[in-house]
Design a protein around this nucleic acid. Structure first.
Length: 571
RNA sequence: GCGCCCAUGGCUCAGCUGGAUAGAGCGUCGGACUACGAAUCCGAAGGUCGAAGGUUCGAAUCCUUCUGGGCGUACCA
């Protein structure tokens, strides 16, 4: 079931980070130029404020003068001058403003303005980083959706974690999100599963059979056959194949699915709903939608088969929905399934697929449009395959031969935190090298520890401070001016960026931005730590710095929570 | 053949949807613990952003062509 956001919209909408404050200053300044006549009245392009790489370019910079140049027909630097003259810094956050290069406006922030940004971190606590961007709109994220014909392998694991975290990030961004697993439990591969178990069963019962090549080869098939034998004895020897195979199919699918659920749980992935393909057939959903689309001329008959006119929507060729023998294709069920999703009220649906399914996208987009939705109502996130390595050497895998490393084996070996973090570190659209030795290394080679260590270190300092009789301060307790060192400003600036990172990540459906962000945050924190002593004889300064690291800890914790990775207090 | 994805220091990868002198980590070299956790920090070396054109004030980013890799091109899922 979809659950709504748990935060208060009003609090979050009031939040303004430094970029937003500067954007507003610029906007007002430009309007003021219009009324003064120093600029021609034109449409204002969206104002971008960015973090310059170079410290000499200020704390923040905007290219708005360059953006306005063509409309104003004046050199960008002149435009920048007019804008800067009109800036009204009544809140006194600016130390100085410079015009540089081709027309950048560079902002230098007043020292005391920095610490004020931490007020909201303290006020929001666990909720810092959440936003109301989604306005409660309903999104479904469908992922994994592997056939219950065998255990999940490492590629599924990556998709599972990425889907899970996308869902989490969207939820934190104010969407109402539901995680769903589509079980492909209809179709002929399920029959093959049943046959596979059946033949192994025959083998175990002493029959001489040649196990078909087309059947699933894995050892787990024999395990299932053994379970059947132990429970039911020779029942299915007598019953004949026609009666035995459907039973084997159900038995195996049920058992494998349970295993899949358990494995996902060890990875920290839990679904709101498992949706069975069989349900669609049982309720005649497939035939109904085919009939409807046929009446609407999206589906036509040719030589005894039914075709979906996906070319109407830009697909390369039309696609079969019902075969010549009367069997519907996987695509047919998928049409019914996606219709069902929209009928359940999802404003937008996101499918996380293995990259080898990319050829399927055009027909699915055609499908949603034929169903009367916009193309944008369906997003497909492609997850590239995983190369599993051990100490730099590829681990051979062949699904057909049943030789693969399962999710369970990976999580058992490297642990949930390391597994998840490693899956999330790369853009989902690029190949991932997953090295078991690095992932389980308790060393600096393993990136997850870098971040967790920062958190543990913060907790340790705070424990230490409390032991020495210090109080852990809240915002009102500290003197903002004391946080004056460049390292402190850097740290605050990073903290201030977090909500924007989450929003961007949600908007782009790119979870990897979060690990990169926390890594940077941890790095800035470690630098600060090495340069400055938090707990000292100077009580006021100690309070201010304790507050700073407390805020840092909140952000690391919130970010790790989004990733489903723990934030240990000791390690 | 056609379509999609990828190409950035020795290796693995970021690059905020077009911004200023392209960044991390690992590896290499050199430094920092009688101080709150050295799983850390500081510094150095290392790149013509696969190639060639084009778009404009400005390109790793957008367009075209080419090269090299992955995947897909079923009445399989």
């Amino acid at each position: 079931m979809a659950s709504g956001p748990t935060f208060s919209f009003s609090i979050l909408q009031r939040r303004a980070d430094m970029k937003k404050k500067l954007t507003e200053l610029l906007e007002k300044a430009i309007y003021s130029c219009f009324t003064q006549g120093t600029l021609h009245e034109t449409v204002i392009p969206s104002i971008e404020v960015e973090l310059p790489r170079e410290g000499a370019h200020g704390d923040y910079a905007s290219n708005i003068a360059m953006m306005l140049a063509s409309g104003q027909r004046r050199p960008p630097r002149k435009i920048a001058e007019s804008i800067v003259e009109s800036i009204d810094d009544s809140a006194k956050i600016l130390d100085k403003v410079e015009i540089a290069g081709p027309g950048f406006i560079n902002f230098f922030i007043k020292g005391s303005a920095w610490a004020a940004l931490l007020k909201e971190v303290d006020a929001l606590g666990d909720k810092y980083g959440q936003s109301a961007m989604g306005m409660g709109s309903k999104i479904q994220v469908e992922f994994v959706s592997a056939n219950p014909t065998g255990p999940l392998h490492i590629g599924h694991a990556r998709g599972a974690v990425i889907g899970d975290v996308i869902a989490g990030i969207l939820r934190a961004s104010g969407f109402s999100v539901s995680r769903e697993y589509y079980i492909n439990d209809a179709g002929n591969q399920m029959n093959t599963l049943g046959e596979s178990v059946y033949y192994r069963y025959l083998g175990l019962m002493g029959e001489t059979i040649s196990f078909p090549e087309t059947c699933y080869q894995g050892a787990y098939i024999t395990d299932l056959a053994r379970e059947v034998r132990d429970t039911y004895g020779d029942t299915f020897l007598k019953s004949g194949k026609e009666a035995a195979v459907p039973f084997m199919t159900d038995y195996a699918a049920g058992s494998i699915l349970e295993g899949i659920k358990e494995d996902l749980e060890t990875l920290g992935v839990v679904f709101d709903r498992y949706f069975s393909e069989k349900e669609l057939y049982r309720d005649n959903k497939v035939s109904k939608i085919i009939e409807k689309l046929r009446n609407e001329r999206f589906i036509y008959e040719e030589e005894g088969t039914l075709w979906f006119k996906t070319t109407d929507f830009g697909d390369e060729k039309d696609r079969v929905v019902v075969r010549g023998n009367g069997d519907p294709t996987y695509f047919a069920a998928d049409i019914a399934y996606h219709l069902n999703k929209y009928e359940r009220g999802f404003d937008r649906i996101i499918n996380v697929w293995g990259a080898d399914h990319h050829g399927y996208i055009p027909r699915m987009q055609a499908c949603v449009q034929a169903l009367g939705r916009k193309k944008e109502d369906l997003d497909v996130v492609l997850v590239q395959l995983v190369n599993l390595l051990r100490g730099g050497v590829p681990v051979p895998m062949s699904t057909r031969a049943g030789e693969f490393v399962t999710i369970r084996e990976v999580t058992d070996e490297v642990g949930r935190d390391a597994a998840r973090y490693n899956f999330l570190m790369r853009r989902s659209n690029s190949h991932l090298d997953f090295d078991l030795e690095i992932a389980k290394a308790q060393s600096n080679e393993n990136p997850v520890y870098y971040v967790q260590y920062a958190h543990a270190r913060i907790c340790s300092i705070m424990r230490n401070a409390v032991e020495q009789g210090h109080r852990i301060p809240v915002y009102g307790d500290i003197s903002l001016d004391l946080l004056a060192a460049p390292e402190e400003h850097e740290l605050i600036k990073m903290i201030d960026t977090f909500p924007e990172i989450v929003e961007g990540s949600a908007q782009a459906l790119e979870p990897h931005r979060i690990p990169y962000y926390i890594n940077d945050l941890a790095s800035v924190f470690h630098s600060f730590y090495n340069k400055h002593k938090v707990v000292s004889d100077n009580i006021a300064l100690t309070q201010a710095r304790l507050f700073l690291i407390k805020s840092t800890g909140i952000v690391i914790r919130n970010a790790l929570r989004l990733l489903g990775v723990s934030a240990p207090e000791r390690m």
